[in-house]
Design a protein around this nucleic acid. Structure first.
Lengths: 110, 110
DNA sequence: ACTATTAATCGTAATATTGCAATATAAATA
DNA sequence: TATTTATATTGCAATATTACGATTAATAGT
């Protein structure tokens, strides 16, 4: 069916899934990494950085923006993107939970 | 085309994307959370926990296993699953990078 | 051996994602 | 205002994902 049974899960679970899903494509990982590398917010030269056509990059940016992982600002004719702290905060607490668990885990059955 | 241009990205980017993608579904988030909660490794009563049919749960478990986020062990007739530390280690370093960047970021343009 | 029990696999329908050419929009500049 | 530049949107083809019924495989207990 290709359709996720969203209603049956908690809001937190759905939120986390949306965030993770947004990071679930190498192009979007590359975008995040590039935004970190150039530090100052960078606009459409991502198209030059990535091995993808402009509409495709635009679409990936949209997904990252929708998920709350990046923000975009108009800067003259172009648009300037940068990381959105909020989105990453939400992921952070999930991984903190996991790391704490893994560090304290004693008996590994598997 | 629905097909990702994997060859054009680095191995690290593809690896991260695979891990993130595996977490990009609320059922799989729920599975991870449940495995943490019950600590001792739990097998097919995940089917009871989740609002999904047994084959669907089995499929989600397979994806988590393929991504390297969980491990499975035979335990009599049933199978015992638990978190695979390795997979989470890889994600961890990525988020450490991001967090370090976000904490030191001075000028937020967006 | 027979029968539950547990979990994986197969087949398939419904839907989502990926990618791009073509086109549209919007601001900057001549 | 016409043109260039920068980005978004549309439409569509190829492929992937999600979900589950039916079936299979494998072990446990009788």
């Amino acid at each position: 069916m290709g359709i996720t049974k969203t209603q049956h899960f908690t809001e937190e679970q759905n939120e986390l899934a949306v965030l993770a899903k947004a990071l679930g494509h190498p192009a979007r990982i590359a975008i995040i990494e590039h935004l970190i590398k150039v530090d100052s917010c960078i606009c459409g030269d991502l198209v030059n950085e990535l091995p993808l056509a402009q509409p495709t990059v635009s679409q990936h940016l949209k997904e990252l923006k929708n998920a709350g992982l990046i923000k975009g600002n108009f800067e003259g004719a172009s648009i300037c993107y940068c990381l959105n702290e909020e989105g990453f905060e939400k992921i952070k607490s999930f991984f903190t939970l996991i790391n704490t668990y893994l560090e304290n885990r004693k008996d590994q059955c598997c």
